[in-house]
Amino acid sequence: MNAPSALVIGAGIVGLSIARALAVRGHRVTVLERFDRAVGASVRNFGMIWPIGVPNGAAYERALRSRAIWRELIEDARLWHDPCGSLHLAYAQDEWDVLEQYEQANRAMRPCSLLDRDAALARSPALVSEGLHGALFNQDEMIVDPREALRTIPAYLHERHGVEFHWRMPVTAVETGRVWSGTRRFDADQVFVCSGPEFEQLYPQLYAAAPLTRCKLQMMRLASQPDGFRLGAALCGGLSLVHYAGFQQAADVAPLRARYEAQFGDLIELGIHVMAAQNGRGEITIGDSHAYAHTHDPFDEHAINAKVLDYLARFARLPDPRVIQTWHGIYPKLTDGSSEFVAEAAPGVTIVNAVGGGGLGMTLSFGLAEEIVDGRYGEMRRAA
């Protein structure tokens, strides 16, 4: 009996996750990607595997499963990674209060611990010492280089699992059991549409009816730091405490948000919260801002990047702060609070999109893909 066949549209992290989940379960998998390589949101992020950003329950279990799959890929495909954990910094009492609440709520469920000022400074040489109350350290977090990973994983999936990739193959039409790229037709038992916001071109009515918008974020990369300087962990300023659902579930962030809106109203309006992650070459990715609309200007705002850099200077000092790259990414965002958009567009045609909501696609996609391919997605969604 022939193995079941599947077509995956899109070679970003969601498409690669679906392709992997299918391939390791014995499917014959073909991936169609419109460009020569992945160039969308999947390569325009921090590279953070970020369980701390999701709430406890099904989302956290999905994040841990994704992390385990990342570890398998890292070992088998020999990807650079840094299991550095994350440091969440407090420079005011209300920030420390949120960190204390988070640690108390999660100490039995997550590998988190509070660090006093001296312990935090010992963890990272980048920290600004003036005014530092302390930090929360969490061990779950891991950094990969998204540009390297999205370049390497397709070759690994092809060599190890026989996944076929067709590059520069834009999909122009989809129906049950078949996909077209212009006049070229591909047949398969199942089709998975994982092409980010571009799925609007294939299913405009479905897209228009869904609670979807687009998020534009601006990010930067700083120079490779001299003399082997390492951050020691992914660093997060206080604004991240009111951004991620994981903190909102465990702590009362309303007083902190009110203070931020009064003190940093311009940053809140621009959706800015500031994090820093370092790759294997010593370069540091920082960001980001968040703007929501169906159509975004293609121009980056220098003033937004300047605000990110100014806030970074509140908690981190780097030997070489030169900006060597700037960019923006655009990804689909659900407006109803859901963590992903999964829909059957036609019999045997599944759309998987908008994974993570807060830009957590790297953190959740591998786990979500297994749930979908195994038929457990509905059960997991009800559990959440």
Rank of each mutant, 00 (worst) to 15 (best):
N106F: 09
G53N: 03
S129P: 14
V242T: 05
A173H: 15
A120Q: 05
V193K: 03
I304Q: 10
Y207T: 12
A291H: 15
L318P: 07
V24H: 08
V342S: 04
A208Q: 12
A19W: 04
G359W: 01
A383I: 06
G356M: 06
V39G: 12
L79A: 00
A58F: 05
V174L: 02
G357I: 00
G182Y: 14
A38C: 10
M169K: 13
K307H: 08
A105S: 15
A41V: 11
D94H: 02
P170Y: 03
T326E: 15
A277C: 13
V54Y: 04
Y203M: 08
V163E: 06
I18K: 06
A68E: 06
V191C: 03
T363W: 11
Q218E: 15
T213V: 09
N2W: 10
R168I: 08
G10D: 04
V29F: 02
E175A: 12
V179W: 00
A258I: 00
A384Q: 08
M362W: 14
R71F: 05
A68G: 10
A345F: 07
R34H: 08
P154F: 00
C194I: 07
A250R: 12
I304W: 11
D97F: 00
G85D: 09
A63C: 06
L87S: 04
V171Y: 05
L318F: 03
Q101T: 08
A105N: 07
G329F: 12
F366G: 13
N56L: 15
S240Q: 13
Q225D: 07
E175W: 09
L231G: 10
M48C: 11
H328Q: 13
G85W: 04
L22K: 02
A173I: 03
H158T: 06
I272K: 02
E148K: 11
A250W: 08
R322C: 06
R185N: 07
D76I: 07
M142Y: 09
S17V: 07
V308A: 11
F165V: 00
S124Y: 06
H243C: 09
F165C: 01
P83S: 05
D189L: 09
